[in-house]
Simulated scan of single mutants.
Amino acid sequence: MPAAAQPPQTQQDLHAALRTRMIQSGEYSRIMDALRAKLDESGWEDQVRDAAREKARSQDPPNLHSLVKDLEPTALNMIPQEARAEVEAMVRAFVEKSVE
């Protein structure tokens, strides 16, 4: 079947293909390292750890699966906007370079 006649990929397929390409090129590791550095600078890990402790104290008995499920949205919202913007710019640059 010619490429033009193939059905469009789903967003999930595109994300998987992009992630694979990023991993193979080494770009994924570089972006993750930059993100970790930004999160370390901001104290994000300590903030998430404190929130997890508070949440775990309120659980009887503490449950890791439930804790992670409850804490994930909070942890994601705690990521500094500067870190988000930097990672988005790095991914966007990779995609633009890959599409050329």
Rank of each mutant, 00 (worst) to 15 (best):
S66L: 14
E41I: 00
R84D: 01
A56P: 05
G26H: 02
R30D: 07
P62D: 06
M78E: 10
R21K: 13
E41A: 10
V91E: 04
N63M: 02
T20A: 12
R84Y: 10
M78R: 11
R21A: 15
V48L: 00
G43A: 09
L35G: 09
E88N: 12
R92M: 07
N63F: 03
V87H: 01
E72I: 00
E82F: 02
P73C: 02
Q24D: 15
A93I: 05
L35H: 07
H15Y: 14
L18F: 06
A83F: 00
E27I: 02
T20S: 14
I79Q: 01
D13T: 12
S29F: 03
P2K: 06
Q9P: 04
D40Y: 03
A34Q: 12
L67G: 05
A4L: 15
D33G: 09
L64P: 05
T10M: 11
E86T: 05
R84S: 05
P7E: 13
Y28M: 08
L76D: 12
L39Y: 00
N77K: 09
G26N: 04
R30S: 11
E72H: 04
A93T: 05
A93C: 01
Q59S: 01
L14E: 13
L64N: 07
A3V: 13
W44D: 10
L71D: 00
G43P: 11
S25Q: 03
R53W: 10
E54S: 12
R92L: 14
Q47A: 15
L35V: 07
V68K: 06
Q24C: 04
R49V: 11
G26E: 03
A75L: 00
K55F: 04
I79V: 15
L35M: 15
L67T: 07
I31C: 11
V68Q: 02
V68M: 02
E45I: 14
K69W: 05
Q24H: 11
G43N: 10
A83S: 00
R57I: 10
D60A: 14
R21M: 04
K97S: 12
E72C: 01
R84L: 10
A5W: 03
L35I: 11
R19Y: 07
M22D: 00
D40P: 02
Q9M: 14
K97V: 03
V95A: 10
P8V: 01
H15E: 08
M22I: 03
M78L: 15
N63P: 00
E82V: 12
P73Y: 00
L35K: 08
